[in-house]
Simulated assay, not measured.
Amino acid sequence: MNTVLALIDFSDVSSRVLDHAKSLAKAFDSEVVLMHVVPPEPLVVDFEPPAVPPDVFDARQKELSIMRNDLIEQGVHASAEVHGGPLQETLLEQIGSIDPDVIVMGSHGHGSLYHLIVGSVTEGIIRNAQRPVVIIPSVPAPQMRAVKVTQAEAPAEDVGLGVPLPA
């Protein structure tokens, strides 16, 4: 594995996306490419395509550079790219250009109605990227702990199962 592409959206899940990408890169001595896409401002009443706000673009470039520098300080080969345009289209175009071995991205877990109306960038990447995609959920999995049940605490059929229970 040579290239891990980490799609960063600067949401709560981005730090975990970065951690997973870093772990993969260290395990396989790969480069991490950090990527963020700044979507255009919503179209109001105009027939021109909407523009990407330059102040947002510059701010995201600075933030992504900080993340890249942190990875480099930790011994990970890293680069950072910020692009402007429609999210899914731009991401798929850049994925084709970079040709990563794996893509790491977050999922926000919106409901079915949201997906029906707005769609899902994550789903679009999974369906169209033609690369393995690691999805990091917005809500971490609950921590589990093993519990040993003794005869005195439970009915005979449950004894000794050691079933993991939420902490």
Results as ranks from 00 to 15, higher is better:
residue 128 N to A: 10
residue 144 M to T: 08
residue 65 S to K: 11
residue 117 I to F: 12
residue 133 V to T: 13
residue 96 G to I: 02
residue 58 D to S: 09
residue 134 V to L: 15
residue 119 G to N: 06
residue 41 E to D: 14
residue 108 H to T: 07
residue 64 L to N: 01
residue 94 Q to C: 04
residue 110 H to Q: 13
residue 70 D to A: 09
residue 101 D to H: 14
residue 49 P to H: 07
residue 161 L to E: 15
residue 101 D to S: 15
residue 123 E to N: 11
residue 90 T to G: 03
residue 162 G to C: 14
residue 22 K to P: 00
residue 133 V to K: 08
residue 80 A to C: 03
residue 124 G to T: 05
residue 12 D to T: 13
residue 8 I to T: 09
residue 145 R to Y: 11
residue 120 S to W: 01
residue 77 H to N: 10
residue 92 L to H: 04
residue 28 F to M: 07
residue 29 D to W: 00
residue 59 A to Q: 10
residue 72 I to V: 14
residue 91 L to I: 09
residue 145 R to W: 08
residue 58 D to W: 07
residue 85 G to I: 03
residue 123 E to D: 12
residue 143 Q to K: 11
residue 97 S to D: 08
residue 154 A to Y: 02
residue 56 V to C: 07
residue 161 L to D: 14
residue 90 T to F: 05
residue 65 S to Q: 12
residue 21 A to P: 02
residue 68 R to T: 08
residue 144 M to V: 09
residue 140 P to W: 09
residue 22 K to M: 08
residue 160 G to D: 10
residue 84 G to Y: 01
residue 160 G to P: 09
residue 90 T to Y: 06
residue 85 G to W: 05
residue 30 S to R: 00
residue 81 E to K: 12
residue 110 H to N: 13
residue 71 L to W: 00
residue 147 V to F: 10
residue 106 G to R: 03
residue 104 V to R: 00
residue 139 V to S: 14
residue 122 T to G: 15
residue 104 V to E: 01
residue 28 F to E: 06
residue 12 D to M: 05
residue 111 G to L: 06
residue 143 Q to L: 07
residue 97 S to A: 11
residue 100 P to F: 05
residue 39 P to C: 06
residue 156 A to T: 11
residue 120 S to M: 02
residue 117 I to V: 15
residue 11 S to V: 02
residue 161 L to Q: 13
residue 129 A to N: 09
residue 8 I to A: 06
residue 103 I to G: 04
residue 70 D to R: 15
residue 134 V to C: 13
residue 93 E to I: 02
residue 49 P to D: 05
residue 84 G to V: 01
residue 105 M to I: 05
residue 56 V to D: 07
residue 159 V to I: 11
residue 149 V to R: 08
residue 128 N to R: 14
residue 82 V to T: 14
residue 23 S to E: 15
residue 15 S to H: 14
residue 57 F to A: 03
residue 91 L to Q: 02
residue 79 S to M: 07
residue 143 Q to G: 04
residue 29 D to V: 01
residue 2 N to W: 13
residue 154 A to H: 06
residue 19 D to P: 00
residue 155 P to K: 11
residue 86 P to Q: 12
residue 63 E to C: 01
residue 127 R to I: 00
residue 81 E to Y: 09
residue 86 P to Y: 13
residue 9 D to T: 07
residue 98 I to V: 11
residue 167 A to P: 03
residue 90 T to C: 04
residue 159 V to L: 06
residue 85 G to Q: 03
residue 68 R to Q: 15
residue 2 N to E: 15
residue 101 D to C: 03
residue 29 D to N: 14
residue 76 V to G: 01
residue 92 L to D: 03
residue 143 Q to M: 07
residue 91 L to C: 04
residue 160 G to S: 09
residue 152 A to Y: 04
residue 62 K to P: 04
residue 60 R to V: 07
residue 28 F to I: 00
residue 141 A to Y: 05
residue 10 F to S: 01
residue 28 F to W: 09
residue 46 D to F: 10
residue 6 A to N: 06
residue 86 P to H: 13
residue 94 Q to D: 05
residue 136 I to L: 01
residue 104 V to Y: 01
residue 12 D to Y: 07
residue 47 F to G: 15
residue 154 A to R: 04
residue 98 I to P: 01
residue 2 N to P: 04
residue 33 V to T: 14
residue 160 G to Y: 08
residue 72 I to E: 12
residue 17 V to Y: 04
residue 65 S to C: 02
residue 28 F to C: 06
residue 123 E to V: 09
residue 8 I to L: 10
residue 155 P to A: 08
